[in-house]
Write a protein that binds this DNA or RNA. Structure first.
Lengths: 240, 240
DNA sequence: GGGACAGTTCGGCCGCGAGCGAAGCATTCG
DNA sequence: CGAATGCTTCGCTCGCGGCCGAACTGTCCC
């Protein structure tokens, strides 16, 4: 016997995530937005009372954080560490035994473009990373990415001031994140977050309600084409 | 309702890890060695029948892999992804609410030096990373590390042929891994694995039975001192 | 004030699954 | 061969925890 203590609390955390309803809640929060208890109840597929209990547990263990706002209560993932843990579990789950998992249209939308906590993921993110690397703006060695001087100027023209981002915290400027569905790295870290913010700001992409999925708008299609030479052939992109 | 499918299987994986006994088993396997069912039963603190059931489930879901050898059955973590997921959960657990967790001597040993799946972790690993960075053999930008040309020559002299490692797979040569106990990055990836192997080969460190902890030997103390200018003051280092 | 809506707390039901004892296989040894 | 060891399978018990209905608290709006 001996080390009960060391492996013990990881079990508590995992058990917390290991319930279908709570996992659905956390997955929904992986979209990066704070959601209300009611929205989370719908995601979880259980009644609001049950959800309330789940949220209380998650908050107790500091997996999610609570922000009261009027008569709404907004929940979000407490720390990036939590997002990373969930991401890692997704990766393991995706490679598990025989995902017969018939890939519904919903999954297909997620594979195309989605948010991953605070940055872009899915095929769109991979294509973007490819283009930036090809142009020499970025080099992705597994684990981290480096922005070239030319790349820095390019991002500046696009409306992202890397130098300004640099200082604010010790968070890596550009990390890579292994794409859950495609098993290839995409751009995460501060640069990844800044890119997603900018795309949303420009309305090149917009969030699909009740989902982590993103939809490329019509201006987005031409924007990606002109700025990044990316010609998307997604028929579902929104008209108008 | 809607996306039951997406968040579902991550719940299965997390639930698997979210049992105390199974978490202990997986934590033990984070040492990187394959262990027998009996050893794992002792780590888990339950009988061998119960352990057998747990191992069957873990193997079914491909979290652990089985290797039969005579009348022994050796279990190990199935993939590095699994190790990463457990590591991420440890990180979340370590920063959870008020770990009053009285830090026993066992924990103290783990904080000093331990294995993290296939590489070195703990204070020893941090000190090593510091020295290598100071000397300019290595630069750690969060997420990844780069070995300088001089560093490559240094590792070669030390008995690690980076060029040979480079080719074998697309696994990153040097990743960083956030140290669970100290919250700072240490050296992981192929270089990390190669360093641990070499230290074990030189008998500078040795595994503590039934634990992920490592012990620095007397030759190890002088080795670390002469090669890396690291002067360890651990009183527990083994005499002879 | 009253009514609607968001969210939580309480009480009770019920099912899943962790746990062990005992028995059943396999492998290795004398 | 038969005893010993390592591990698994079977059958059973029992407690934890998820779930919902109902009632309660709190906020906003007319």
């Amino acid at each position: 016997m001996g080390n009960m203590a060391s492996g013990n609390t990881i079990a508590e955390v995992a058990a917390l995530i290991g319930d279908t309803a709570r996992a659905n809640i956390l997955s929904a929060l992986m979209g990066g937005q704070a959601l209300t208890a009611g929205e989370l109840a719908r995601h979880a597929g259980v009644t609001s009372q049950t959800t309330s209990g789940h949220l209380a547990k998650l908050a107790d263990s500091e997996l999610v954080a609570l922000e009261k706002q009027g008569r709404h209560r907004y929940y979000r993932l407490a720390t990036p560490d939590v997002a990373q843990a969930i991401h890692a579990l997704m990766t393991v789950a995706a490679n598990g035994p025989k995902r017969h998992h018939p890939i519904g249209p919903r999954d297909e939308a997620l594979r195309n473009a989605r948010t991953c906590y605070d940055h872009l993921a899915g095929r769109l993110a991979l294509a973007l990373a490819d283009v930036l690397c090809e142009r020499g703006h970025l080099t992705l060695t597994d684990g981290a990415g480096f922005v070239s001087a030319e790349g820095e100027r390019f991002f500046m023209r696009f409306g992202i001031d890397l130098a300004a981002l640099q200082g604010t915290s010790k968070r890596p400027l550009c990390r890579t994140c292994l794409d859950w569905s495609e098993r290839r790295p995409h751009i995460a870290g501060k640069l990844g977050a800044a890119l997603l913010d900018r795309f949303l700001e420009l309305k090149w992409v917009e969030r699909v309600p009740d989902s982590r999925a993103l939809r490329v708008t019509v201006p987005g299609r031409s924007g990606f084409a002109s700025t990044f030479d990316m010609f998307l052939c997604d028929p579902q992109s929104r008209r108008a």
